[in-house]
Design a protein around this nucleic acid. Sequence first.
DNA 1: AGTAATTTGGTACGCTCGTGCCAATCTGGT
DNA 2: ACCAGATTGGCACGAGCGTACCAAATTACT
Lengths: 195, 195
Amino acid sequence: MTAATPKGERRRQALVEAAADLLVDGGFDAVRHRAVAERAGLPLASTTYYFDSLDDLVTAALEFHGEAELAYGKVRLAELDVVACGGEAFIDLVLDLLLGPPAGERDAEAVLLRYERLVATGRRPYLRPLMRRLSGELHGLLTEIFGRAGQPVGRERVEELIALVDGAVVNALIEISPDPRAAARRMLAKAMSSR
Amino acid sequence: MTAATPKGERRRQALVEAAADLLVDGGFDAVRHRAVAERAGLPLASTTYYFDSLDDLVTAALEFHGEAELAYGKVRLAELDVVACGGEAFIDLVLDLLLGPPAGERDAEAVLLRYERLVATGRRPYLRPLMRRLSGELHGLLTEIFGRAGQPVGRERVEELIALVDGAVVNALIEISPDPRAAARRMLAKAMSSR
DNA sequence: AGTAATTTGGTACGCTCGTGCCAATCTGGT
DNA sequence: ACCAGATTGGCACGAGCGTACCAAATTACT
């Protein structure tokens, strides 16, 4: 069900944002009708009025969150300063695109959803079209960043670097005090310096 | 609670195996008291008698499954034929260690748990000690395989190759017809030929 | 054989969940 | 102002969940 009224559209959007927040805080399991309604300050039934099912709500929340990430990436791309984009700064830029802006103490948690959603797609085929689109746009963004920074790369090389970062992150998640960004940074620095 | 009787120990083990099966088939969410009891052909209460909580049961199931994987890896290591271990065959061996034996049509599903558990550890700190141990043993096994095959590698190189495979897999999970093994194979072949 | 400890398994409690229902209310077009 | 359609929100149903309980049965040990 989609809203037909401006106010209705605002309510629907509030639900999507509340669901996206829950997604970040507690993962897929945290997105429940009642939790979403409460966080949005709306009655329970509004969640079933605007979304055919919980899967619909989860999909909308994931799309909203993914688009926000891409928007952040586009901003970073637009404000890219080609001259001040040396090795260190460039690596940080790539990491910010792939993992989001550094979140300090809560970095591991902030990064987690990026991988939960990949793995979750394995058991939720209905997420595949969305995830493929988001992933494709991210690849494009990254390719453009490399080109703009004077290091043009092919599709294979981009996929290789992304895989390296992603693999480093998921393996870092099991550490006592996980610092996935640092692990990814190490891998990325080594891979980019050796070519 | 741990069993004090031989029969009790057998029952407990049956529960662990049933839970491990459910873990493979349906992921973490599928491991429920009732589902485990039913699959093991035991009454519901046996699950709470032998395990203090569901987390305990999940942990035991994951440990059982992980040990089985390591045992498989050790077998492959033991039967390694150094001469017939050329590039292609060696890559397949490494993939089998990291992803388990090829499962044909259901390969994507079989591989999935290996990554679900990494990501799940992000929100379940109680899994960290176990996952660290399993991961450490796998790294050791892989290092030994490389050495035995006449390509000794350092810790950093092993971690890099593992990250490459893992990253390739999680990114392959969102494809229409996921073939994570093929994606990992491509990455691995390229990385190992270029050095 | 007898007693104590362990194990068994049926049952129930309290809770959360997704979802359906429907009278009341609001809104936009005429 | 009026009315059809959109929206609201309180409520309840049935299912599944983790877990506790406890009398009966079994087992281990002297």
